[in-house]
Amino acid sequence: MKLAVVGKGGSGKTTTAAVVARTLARHGTSVVALDCDSNPNLGISLGVGDDETERLIAMRQALDEGEQEHAPGWDDLLDRFGTDAPDGVRLAVVTAIQNPEPGCP
C-alpha cells in the first residue's frame, strides 16, 4: 500500500503522517516513511529526535551536492541513508535524492 499525505503548510500533515506510520507498524505492517518535504521534520514527529533528523538532512544535502554517491536501489537507499524510527518504521529523507526538483516524484 502506498500512501501520500498532502496539505497546506502548517496543517498538521507531518504529525498525521507520523502517527499513521507508527500505528501501521505497531499492527505488524513493515513501514517505510519518506520525508519529501522541502522542510524535512518527519523524523522529529516520528520520535527519532533533533540530532538524528539533522543527520539525515545533512546526508541528503551531501547527495544533492554530489559529495556522496547515490544509492543504486531503493532498499540500498534505505540502508545507507535511512534510520530506524520507533515501532520499526524505517525513515528516509528523499527530497531531491532522485530528482533535483523539490518534492517526491
Binding site: A4, V5, K13, A17, A18, S30, V32, A33, C36, D37
Partner: peptide
C-alpha cells in the same frame, strides 16, 4: 507500506 509526507 510506503507513506510519503509530501512537500507543503
Amino acid at each position: 507500506t510506503v507513506i510519503a509526507d509530501l512537500e507543503a
